[in-house]
Structure formats: structure tokens, C-alpha cells
Nucleic acid binder design. Structure first.
Lengths: 178, 178
DNA sequence: GTAATTCGTGACCAATCAGTCAATAATGAA
DNA sequence: TTCATTATTGACTGATTGGTCACGAATTAC
């Protein structure tokens, strides 16, 4: 018996994720958020307590979508080498400048906020575990693959040529066959 | 024929580097800078035009110190494997939460500022070239090593256990011997 | 000593920050 | 329809942002 919300919070969360991913926590203002979502502050604050809650929700959304996707790809069907190749090819092909939201969060927010840190570590562990499974349980190989993949995305974010990214991906792929 | 400056800008630059490295551009306020350097705004602004100039100077200082150090270590004496091992051991032992200033800058500032982007790319190229030399000219291997090293530092920044970092370092080291 | 010039300090600026409040609009239950 | 309840809007808050200005202190050239 009350007025219903006129927007879909899940959809708004997508916009929040894109914003924070691109501009970081400090780099995103409430004004940016209002503009990107087309909503007033009050509507937003009614769903999330404050800006930090919006950020954490966006990060959780990233974990749900992207990290889960990564794990599924690594745990998928076919020979391990093909699965890894598909993942790396995707990273090379995308080649956006945003990097990995998770890694960005780790760098600029984790130390400033315990909740963020916990979420980042949990996601990193999931990714690490998936890479280790892919490497047939070889923990060193799994950890190195995880490092290689994250590093590749970092190089992509730095704006390196796609040719270089291609080579890096090839090199990382070889790591699986040692 | 005028009053001399009462502080050493180079020394101040060290404090600026540490600050921006730890907290990022947006996360560092002029108030923080005044506190960390013990100087008033006017003294700072007389040396650097604005906050952005301070950031770029700090980044350049990082390039001069750390990136040059990395390159020298990779180009040093002894068997390549030992040089790489020393670098990786250092990354594992340090295990701080700041990550690589260069990578942080790439992620949160490069897209917002062309000067930063240029500097980041130049440094990344230097690092990449050094890794490729280490790999005996094998571009794919060099790029993968670069990715692995940066990824390792990212994992360190994310706060993963040193044991995991150790394993990742071992895995990356194996990459050299393929 | 004196003039010229730069330095350092603290008050000050408009703009922006995240967040709040009061008033109005819209809805469903009765 | 009426009423209770929630959503939305926009004005507003105090705090903080990066940056400036004016003034007194310090120093060197002469």
C-alpha cells in the first residue's frame, strides 16, 4: 500500500558497475552517478545507504557476472589448453582500457576499506583456484597462470598494442604445457 | 639576490611519490600533501604548478628509480634465470599492498590524463623490452614474463598469502625455461 | 645599510563533495 | 474515495576540494 519504485535497482546496478569500473571510487561523484543512472540522489540513497554501499554492490555484481564467467570458462569442456586459449583470446580481443574491476578495486580501495578488501580477496581466491584446477592441481602453475592473466589485462589497460598482447597471451599459454 | 628555498624539492618529491603511490591521485588531497611534506601550499605550488604536476613529477621519479632499477636487474650479470629469480624473490619478499605505482597510475589516471598515459606506456615498453632481452629476444616469452611479473605484484597488492605469491613466482620462473 | 626579489604563512575563494530534509506526487488497501 | 505509506524532486547543509592572494620574513647584490 505504497507507491512502487519506478526503476529497476538491478538495472541501475549495471550502470553503477560501469561507472565505478571506469572511473574508480574517488573518481566517481554522486553527480556522475545521478547523470549516468538518470535518477535523483534520494532514489539512490533509498536503495543503498551511501556511496560506499553502491560501490560494494557494484563490486559484488562484478563478482557475480565476470568472475563467475571466468571460472565457468576455465572449468568448461574440452582440453584445458583450449579453454585457456579462449580466455586469453577474449582478453586480447577485448583490449579495453578499464582493466579488471577487481584489480582496480584492490589497488585503490582495498586498503582504504576492509569490506572491499575482503571481497577482493575472496574473488582472487576463486580465480586462483580455477586456474589451479585448470593446471591439473599444480599450485605453482595455477598461481603463475593467474598472475599472467591479470598481468595481461593490466598491459591491456596500459594501452599496449594488441600485437604485444597477442604475444603475451601466447607466452602465457605455453606456461600450461611445461 | 633573493631568499633561498628552505627545503629540498627532490626530497619532497620522495614524499609525494610515497603518498600518490599509496593513495592514488584522487585519494590524495592537498591537505595530505601539506601534512606529509611539512610544507605550506604556497611553497609547493612555487615548485610545481598544480597537483597534477606533482603527480606527474612523482611518476617520473618512480620511473627514474624503480623502473630503471628493474631494468638494471634484468640486464645484470649472471645467468638469466638467476636474475629473474632475484627479481621475483624481491617482489615476494616485499609483498606490500601498494602494487606497482606505474600500474596503479595506468588504471586510475591514464585514461583521464594524456601525459600520464604517455609516461605509463613508455615505462611499460622499457620493462617489456628488458624482459624480452632476458628471454633471449623471444618476444612472446618476454611479454609473458612481463605479464607474470606485473600480475604477481597485483596479487601481492590484493593481499594474498606470501605462500601463494611464492608459488606464483616459481611458476613464472619456469616460464623462462620453456 | 638599502633596494630588489623571492619565500613562507595564514586567511581566503568559489566550486564541489557526500548526504539530508521538507514538500509533493503516486500508489495500494480498505 | 480516503488514508496510510512510500517514491521522487529540488533546495539546502556543512565539510572539503584545489587553488589564490596579500603580507611579513629572509636573503643577496650593490
Amino acid at each position: 500500500m505504497a507507491r512502487p519504485r519506478s526503476f529497476d535497482p538491478d538495472q541501475t546496478l549495471g550502470a553503477l558497475k560501469a561507472l565505478f569500473w571506469e572511473k574508480g571510487y574517488e573518481g566517481t561523484s554522486m553527480q556522475d552517478i545521478e547523470a549516468a543512472t538518470g535518477l535523483g540522489k534520494q532514489s539512490l540513497y533509498r536503495v543503498w545507504a551511501d556511496k560506499r554501499a553502491m560501490y560494494l554492490a557494484a563490486l559484488a555484481s562484478y563478482a557475480r557476472d565476470e568472475v563467475t564467467g571466468l571460472v565457468q570458462m576455465l572449468d568448461g569442456d574440452g582440453p584445458p589448453r583450449a579453454r585457456l586459449a579462449a580466455l586469453l583470446d577474449g582478453a586480447v580481443a577485448q583490449a579495453d582500457r578499464r582493466g579488471c574491476f577487481l584489480c582496480n578495486a584492490s589497488l585503490d580501495q582495498a586498503q582504504a576499506n576492509p569490506d572491499t578488501q575482503a571481497q577482493v580477496q575472496a574473488m582472487m581466491q576463486m580465480s586462483l583456484a580455477a586456474f589451479t584446477r585448470l593446471a591439473g592441481g599444480d599450485a605453482a602453475k595455477g598461481a603463475a597462470l593467474n598472475a599472467g592473466y591479470n598481468g595481461l589485462r593490466g598491459m591491456s589497460a596500459a594501452g599496449l598494442d594488441r600485437a604485444v598482447l597477442r604475444k603475451a597471451a601466447d607466452g602465457v599459454l605455453k606456461l600450461l604445457e611445461t
